[in-house]
Simulated scan of single mutants.
Amino acid sequence: MSQQLLNSGVAGRLEPLPAADHPELLAPPVGDAIRSLDLDAYVAAIDPEYADTENLCAHYDVPLDASINAVVVRGTRAGVEKHVVCMTPADRRVDVNGLVRKKLNARKASFAPMDYAVDATGMEYGGITPVGVPEDWPIWVDAAAADVPWVCIGSGIRGSKLFLPGADLLKLPGAERVDDLARPN
């Protein structure tokens, strides 16, 4: 395991392993993306019952300020749909009807339906991550998420979590840093 990740305390009581060496802990599109991108990624198995952020942090001592959530948003205008993955710290909420709607140039924006997000990404609900999402989906990373030294994000399945430097979120295809993407809860 990376000494920096170990020293950061982000993994709490989890035992991260090099993600590229453990595809069994990743959804197939996530494993494919990990192998093709230059990411310093680690994965740790978890009990799926603790996949939701608050439960994960409480049970495994993962710091809430390092937990970054992926939110799939669908925007529509004149019958045309666009999707974006928004990465925000767990203690903030995405400004869907303000900044996201305007940036998508959408008349209406909302969270993508669960069934659609699961089908389109090939990932489990509660484990969706920007790593391996459809190539035509932009990934918007809140500045507060990109600035965290190490982040804990979904792995595409509920049975594990992915750890990588926050700046590596910006290495993902279609990723862009977006200031004020989210607001405090």
Rank of each mutant, 00 (worst) to 15 (best):
L162R: 09
N55L: 15
S110P: 03
P184L: 00
E54R: 14
I139A: 04
Q3G: 11
R74E: 14
L172E: 12
Y50T: 13
V96W: 00
P130A: 00
D47A: 06
G12P: 15
D147A: 14
L14W: 05
I34D: 10
A70C: 09
D40C: 11
L181F: 03
L172Y: 12
N185A: 07
S67C: 15
D95H: 08
L25A: 04
M1S: 15
A90N: 11
T129F: 07
P134A: 03
D52G: 11
D136Y: 07
M1Y: 13
P23G: 01
K161I: 01
C152M: 07
V30A: 11
P28I: 03
N105E: 13
Y42G: 08
E81L: 10
L99C: 10
L162T: 07
H83V: 05
N69K: 13
A41F: 02
A145V: 02
R158A: 06
L181R: 05
K103T: 06
I157D: 05
A20D: 10
L17G: 03
P23F: 00
L5P: 07
A44M: 09
P173A: 00
E54M: 14
A106Y: 05
V80R: 05
A112Y: 02
F111N: 11
I128V: 08
T76N: 12
K103P: 02
D61S: 14
L99Y: 07
P184S: 02
V30Q: 11
A112C: 13
G154Y: 08
A90P: 15
F163K: 10
L181H: 06
M1D: 12
G159Y: 02
A45L: 12
C152G: 03
G126L: 07
I157V: 15
L6Y: 13
Y42Q: 13
A109D: 04
N55H: 14
H83R: 08
P29F: 01
S8N: 03
A117C: 11
R77W: 02
L39H: 10
E124L: 06
R101C: 11
M87P: 14
A112K: 03
V100L: 01
A90H: 08
L170D: 13
I153K: 09
G79Y: 01
Y42T: 08
L170R: 09
R77C: 06
G159S: 08
F163V: 06
V118H: 09
E24L: 01
K171P: 15
M114A: 13
A144V: 07
E81Y: 05
D115Q: 09
L14D: 10
P16C: 01
V96M: 00
V178A: 06
T121P: 03
K82S: 15
